[in-house]
Design a protein around this nucleic acid. Sequence first.
RNA 1: GUGGAAUUAGCUCAGUUGGUCAGAGUGCCAGGUUGUGGCCCUGGAGGUCGUGGGUUCAAGUCCCAUAUUCCACCCCA
Length: 421
Amino acid sequence: MNLRAPKGTRDVLPEEAAMRRKLESIFADICGRYGFGEIRTPTFEHTEVFVRGVGGSSDIVRKEMYTFLDKGDRSITLRPEGTAAVVRAFVEQGMASWPSPVKLWYNMNMFRYERMQKGRYREHNQIGCEIFGSESPMADAELIGLLDTFFRELGIKETELHINSIGCPICRVDYEKALRDYFRPYLDEMCDDCTERFEKNPLRMLDCKVIKCQEIAVEAPAPLDALCDDCRDHFDAVTSYLEALDIPYCVNLRLVRGLDYYTRTVFEFVSPNVGTQGSICGGGRYDGLIAELGGADIPGVGFALGIERLLLELEAQGVLPDTDNPPSLYIASFESTAAEALKLAQTLIRQGFSVATDVIGKSLRAQMKAADKLGVTYIVVLGDFELEQGIVNVRRLSDGEEQSCALTELGDFLESAVGAD
RNA sequence: GUGGAAUUAGCUCAGUUGGUCAGAGUGCCAGGUUGUGGCCCUGGAGGUCGUGGGUUCAAGUCCCAUAUUCCACCCCA
């Protein structure tokens, strides 16, 4: 019997879920401040959306998609990434007629059939942003600025921004030809992967990990030198905006990225703390994608950030978010007063306070221990005596200090306690 | 898809050359105070040693297969 979670999936338990919720709410808040609206697309799409959107030469489409036929013989694919799906929605919903630019953010789970490693899962979550309708480098810079804001609010220090330009379809053709001309004499000395890349995507030969290939690639024509004037100007403008925003960056000529839709700007935030993946967040410009998916010739730029990898990074840097812990109360009771305790708890909970009571029938001593383990701020014992008097002793667990309080004023007491913290 | 390592209680892990090896710590539950937490003490529950075969008088321990996780490639978040 195999009742374990499927390979590459995981359970998120309360402690981690609370941190995720916190970090997601920070991201949502920042997106709102930058003027982005949230979008949620279906968990699955027609396979064609990703084949055409992400591109047939990408690894995602070639070997990582969860694709199946539904009962109507439609080819369906669980979304492996967000941008193609969001662009599909953009086209289908006629967002081209919305005030431009259209700025959207999302927080969605993604599915890729891959070998497992730390920070790499078959189901994982990405938060991301897209800006449609701006060809300007200002849009690229605003997105990176948003990420910088997010990382600052999280307290992340050590991640590096790598940025590059891979040109437009026009100058890339020339550049790929130049690369092939350069590499052709060395092909016999290079690895099998590179000989395959030579045909399909010579750009990838630049970041091969094989030592011999790296030595050969050192002298290869640099991508930035091959850019046409427009692309060169665009890239220079992006970096100058980053400087204006006071965002440090590192031009990484070997940064290529494996999704077919990218044009011009590509960037990543990398860190040594998330396994060999390194990349926490990746993005770039995709000026031809909307047209590719049947829309008008509208430019776009966006990024996606892996929540699981972000959590690894936060943990490594020791800046995991504090989960909110409002002052809370434990009401201990006896068999004779259990009903009154439940009722009092419900009343206070409905007033907005966080209140726990025993629902097992534990001894008073066991209830005290339970309250301590829960980490509540205050505890009261509600017995027959207290009910008769209408007064309870409120004990603060941190230092054992007690003060009496009328039952009818417990809400006010907790209210003032919130203010005191 | 390729190569390597790991898998024993909820968690972190011991277990020597196959023969009381099914254990420790921690966590959990209960009691020590039938009306008062943390520390401490006592007791208890939980594992067919990832799964399935094989070798053997005997396997947690050796062999094979398989699953899962981790690491290195590949690639991406």
